[in-house]
Design a binder for these strands. Structure first.
Lengths: 302, 302
DNA sequence: AGCTATTGTTCATATATAAAAACAGTATTA
DNA sequence: TAATACTGTTTTTATATATGAACAATAGCT
């Protein structure tokens, strides 16, 4: 039972002018209002209202208490209104975590687009190689490639993405283009490496799946640096489609290993709990889904 | 059920840092706290807390709501403290109604005495011939001679008082002093009359009680005027002991009808409800009781 | 790694609360 | 002046609420 029961009944009795009217407003029985006021008086060990069957009048003590409670009721009403507004409008802060590459290439233009429609929104975009802790670091949303196993979060697939092995035309003038994954061993591969670890390159051919640990004398935790190194002919790079689109179109890079596709992966939005999703978060993820579907064109078959 | 249930649980969960700790502080089960927060979230249609088994963290929405609720809790606590102080100290306003005579003669010095001990008190003394409506006119206390029949008020006897028939020695030189109530018919009686009505004079002899409607060509609603008229030999007056003390001692007036006593009456304090008596009201009536016992000396037997 | 202590949630049950009707009292109205 | 309609309170009964144990999950400890 609440520590402060009865204060709203008191306020409403005064505002309405009678127990009966207050009961009607509050949607309870008048007997209940009577009981609540009585208990409040017992608890405060003072009489708050003088009452005859017809007239209600505040005690001096009651008047002082009423003033404060009235303020409290107004504050609580204001608080609920504020929440309601926040809940149903796209406003406030949206704190997003993402890897550098995805964030810079995909999210920055997407966010720009979304904010044009929702100018009251504040964005806090945090790019890093880590998988952030949503709770600890107060992120509303994390965007990454591949889902999380954490059962406390929702993984929402936004778009599929593929990785391609690419090289510059220059490089391919000097080296024989690989046609099977095993051929990669003969090449210098530009590796994405973070915190000392790199992931193997995976491919799916007709019926078989291959995982290759490649040779490399060049590592970076920056996708931009990897792509740049590849265009300058330093070796082969394994990069996602959304990051290659322009350079493939312009011919600065070309794909190799035709017939071998990388394993499909998903760009995922990750957030806490499906229930009670705030409007801003719900609408932003919906927007991202549409935006990615529109912007990520499947590359011409390789 | 309250319209704002759960806000105190939310505040305490944040203040304590966990559901369990909050439950301990609030003196309820942790299951209950959990349920309250859940309902609050359902009602607001938003998530207020991120929770894992070990960590609690406010949502952006939750943080906003928490700030407001925290303020509300502090305000409610402050309100209760204020009431407590008002309830247990003699301070604030004490609004008293009394008849002119009693008020001027007895209450003014009594109040002066009481206020010396309780300087934080404010007194509002309203003198009139009417029986005031405590509720309607916001009186804490009415002092009068004789109890009220109203079942909604407390009649607290402060002191007994007697009425005496008095005359000036001059008057008695020219007239035969009455010895029985019936003799009053032969005299001019100075009548207390308010709103066109006067009360009969009552007497108790040895074994019998007499009620007399006297003859009068002089009326006033002022006890002071009555007494003054009597000292100037205009006739007989029927006045209370506390108002005659000085004039009887100085010999300006003398009592008649020896052997016939007026009906004893009570000076009464009248207030709303015995329960929840404020400290100032309780202490003031107690003080009046003592003060009257000390100050109203029984007149020498008549 | 495995164990322990502690977390928040869920569920059946005991308790407390709110409703509805009966009650007592008082302004209003005819 | 009597009838009436409405007041706040009381009481019984139906409903809702809080509990406490069982549960699932996790951080810290050894």
């Amino acid at each position: 039972m609440s520590r402060w029961r009865g204060f709203e009944e008191l306020v409403e009795v005064i505002n309405s002018g009678s127990f009966s009217a207050a009961a009607k407003v509050l949607g309870v029985s008048k007997g209940h209002v009577s009981q609540q006021i009585s208990r409040l008086e017992d608890r405060l060990d003072t009489r708050l209202l003088h009452r005859t069957t017809r007239k209600i009048s505040l005690t001096e003590t009651g008047a002082i208490y009423y003033q404060q409670c009235r303020q409290v009721v107004e504050d609580l009403e204001a608080a609920e209104r504020a929440i309601g507004a926040l809940q149903h409008e796209v406003k406030g802060r949206l704190r997003i975590a993402a890897p550098h590459l995805l964030g810079e290439v995909m999210l920055v233009p997407a966010i720009a687009n979304f904010m044009k429609r929702n100018p009251e929104l504040t964005i806090d975009l945090h790019l890093s190689g880590r998988r952030v802790d949503l709770i600890e670091e107060h992120f509303d949303l994390a965007i990454q490639v591949g889902a999380r196993k954490d059962i406390n979060v929702v993984n929402r697939a936004l778009a599929p993405t593929k990785f391609y092995v690419v090289a510059s035309p220059d490089y391919l003038m000097d080296h024989v283009a690989p046609v099977r994954p095993a051929d990669l061993k003969q090449h210098n591969c530009l590796l994405f490496m973070d915190a000392g670890f790199s992931k193997p390159w995976k491919f799916r051919g007709t019926g078989s799946t291959v995982k290759i640990s490649v040779n490399s004398n060049w590592h970076s935790n920056s996708g931009y640096a990897l792509r740049s190194a590849a265009t300058q002919g330093l070796g082969l790079a394994y990069l996602p489609d959304y990051y290659l689109k322009d350079d493939l179109a312009s011919g600065k890079l070309v794909t190799v290993l035709h017939g071998w596709q990388s394993i499909d992966r998903e760009i995922v939005a990750i957030y806490q709990h499906k229930a009670h999703l705030s409007a801003k978060l719900r609408l932003f993820t919906e927007f991202l889904e549409e935006y990615f579907a529109r912007e990520i064109q499947p590359l011409q078959a390789v």
